[in-house]
């Protein structure tokens, strides 16, 4: 009779489901799934995908600017993660490693598709708005504009500000994810914020 290497984590997953647990499991549990997945356990890896796909999608969506591109990115991130899982040290946290893969995948997608080349944040269409943006940025319309503006930033700036201000990583973590120095990240963040501020001010001038 054949055996299936995924059975161990399958039992864990079923146990977790049977217990009615819905919270994110602790780092030890995640580590256990990483170990099982490294041994080729696809079910365990499926669980890892389930735990991390939201944040990977959120990050890719912010950098790339569309649901469909983000969907492609998420798939590619987890396929690459599975492929290179053997090189991952399970004593470390998984999320920073996934952020790094996400940044690389988004860079490749942005480069290959050349989506944003020649379209700068300055040339972005400004939607009409009835009130000043600094008073009403919480509104959906403004959120859409900001999303669009982030996606129009140069890739490195968009990735840096997404990881820092949207995902809440420290500058050191952002630097690791992007494979660069903290000083470079600070420069990219600063430049991105300056561009976004100018963009918002343009909206304000347009609407006042």
């Amino acid at each position: 009779m054949s055996t299936f290497i995924g059975m161990r984590s399958e039992v864990s997953l079923v146990q977790w489901m049977s217990d009615g647990a819905s919270d994110h499991p602790g780092p030890d549990a995640v580590r256990g799934f990483v170990v099982a997945a490294k041994a080729g356990d696809v079910a365990a890896f499926g669980y890892i995908v389930e735990l991390h796909e939201s944040r990977v999608f959120r990050t890719a969506r912010a950098i790339l600017g569309s649901d469909s591109d983000a969907e492609d990115a998420v798939q590619e991130v987890f396929v690459r993660a599975y492929r290179y899982l053997a090189r991952f040290d399970e004593s470390r946290e998984l999320a920073p490693w996934l952020y790094r893969i996400t940044a690389n995948v988004c860079r490749d997608l942005a480069k290959n598709r050349r989506r944003h080349h020649g379209v700068s944040i300055e040339s972005l269409h400004l939607a009409s708005s009835q009130s000043g943006p600094f008073e009403s940025l919480a509104r959906q319309e403004q959120r859409e504009l900001i999303r669009e503006a982030i996606a129009r930033l140069p890739y490195k700036e968009g990735a840096a500000i997404t990881l820092r201000d949207l995902e809440g990583l420290t500058t050191r973590e952002v630097a690791k994810a992007l494979g660069t120095t903290e000083a470079t990240v600070r420069s990219q963040i600063s430049s991105a914020r300056a561009k976004l501020r100018k963009y918002i001010l343009r909206i304000e001038r347009r609407t006042s």
Binding site: F57, L137, R143, L196
Partner: peptide, 26 residues
């Protein structure tokens, strides 16, 4: 305000897409 705007611009993964992504990855 810029920082808050970026933070609040996060897009949640649509439920249908979420299921599809996982299946496609596997």
């Amino acid at each position: 305000v810029v920082r808050s705007a970026v933070a609040s611009s996060a897009v949640t993964i649509p439920a249908g897409l979420r299921a599809g992504i996982r299946v496609s990855v596997l």
